[in-house]
Write a protein that binds this DNA or RNA. Structure first.
Length: 291
DNA sequence: GAGCCGTGGGA
DNA sequence: TTCCCAAGGCT
């Protein structure tokens, strides 16, 4: 539907946020780092960390040469620190097999660790101007409302990709900008709670508006618990090691989670398995590669 | 494919 | 306070 893109492109040109990874001259590497950091993580928290990373590791080979401990400390409290490990692993492959240049085609990107269906297409579109549908939670919500007249997107479905592809204009550069505009609309206007329809550039084309903004009648998404979960305990343990000058003894780690010693031990073991922590010969624990 | 994997801000 | 959720990926 070119009609939607015809509205979105001028709106995006006028209202797009000034994000550092959107500036002219940002490399494919810069875009890839931003996309990994932005997975399940708000823009405001990514912004300063992204700047630090690109200044410190301007090429994939620079990150590839860093120690895991450095990488995890630089990741800070962005969350989901396994993303940092996978990003470094991707950098190793890019440096060794792709001449230190982030690939520009979806299939090659998909083969890299930590890069899935969303990120591969986001990099192809935003870094290289490719015409490929970029489907994230924002785009799925926009399509659910504007195209299908539903309040929420529900579970990901096989038709998400063709549904989104149908919205892209033929011109490659315009299509890439449309993908960015769809995401921006979902992030800033067509938001999950309290959509600002009065500010929407496609409100008169929106199927959800035409249907009278019906409430969501699909399955209710089950919320993930947090308090007392292994995720919380892992986060506490890693936070201790990030904040320590060097290796930490058992006592320091025990203090991170006193509620349930068995759970603490299990979580520490899982961190070792994941490669987020290593144990030294003397029994102490540290971020991997810490000297 | 359902569940797991961090963190913090806003309603 | 509690709950929701924010540019997902992996198993």
């Amino acid at each position: 539907m070119p009609a939607l893109a015809d509205r979105l492109l001028p709106w995006f040109a006028a209202h797009a946020r000034d994000l550092p990874w959107r500036e002219d001259g940002v490399s494919g590497w810069g875009v890839l780092v931003s996309e990994i950091m932005l997975q399940q993580t708000p823009v405001v928290r990514v912004d300063p960390i992204w700047r630090e990373w690109l200044a410190r590791w301007p090429r994939p080979s620079d990150l590839a040469a860093a120690s895991t401990a450095e990488v995890l400390r630089a990741w800070g409290k962005l969350g989901y620190p396994r993303r940092a490990l996978r990003l470094q692993a991707a950098a190793v492959v890019i440096a060794a097999e792709h001449d230190d240049v982030v690939p520009d085609d979806v299939d090659t990107l998909l083969a890299l660790p930590g890069i899935g269906a969303y990120t591969a297409r986001a990099v192809a579109a935003f870094a290289y101007g490719r015409r490929c549908p970029v489907v994230d939670t924002n785009v799925r919500r926009v399509v659910a409302r504007a195209v299908h007249g539903r309040a929420e997107a529900g579970d990901a479905a096989a038709r998400d990709l063709p549904d989104t592809e149908a919205l892209l204009p033929d011109d490659e550069a315009d299509a890439a900008r449309t993908s960015a505009a769809l995401m921006e609309l979902g992030a800033c206007v067509c938001v999950a709670r309290g959509p600002r329809c009065a500010d929407c550039p496609v409100v008169d084309l929106c199927a959800w508006q035409h249907a009278g903004r019906p409430a969501w009648d699909g399955p209710v998404k089950k919320g993930q618990r947090w308090a007392g979960t292994d995720r919380q305990v892992r986060g506490r343990l890693l936070d201790v090691l990030r904040g320590a000058d060097g290796p930490a003894g058992a006592a320091a780690l025990e203090s991170a989670w006193l509620t349930d010693p068995a759970q603490r031990a299990r979580c520490l073991d899982s961190l070792l398995v994941d490669g987020l922590v290593e144990q030294l010969a003397d029994g102490r624990f540290a971020l991997p590669g810490e000297t």
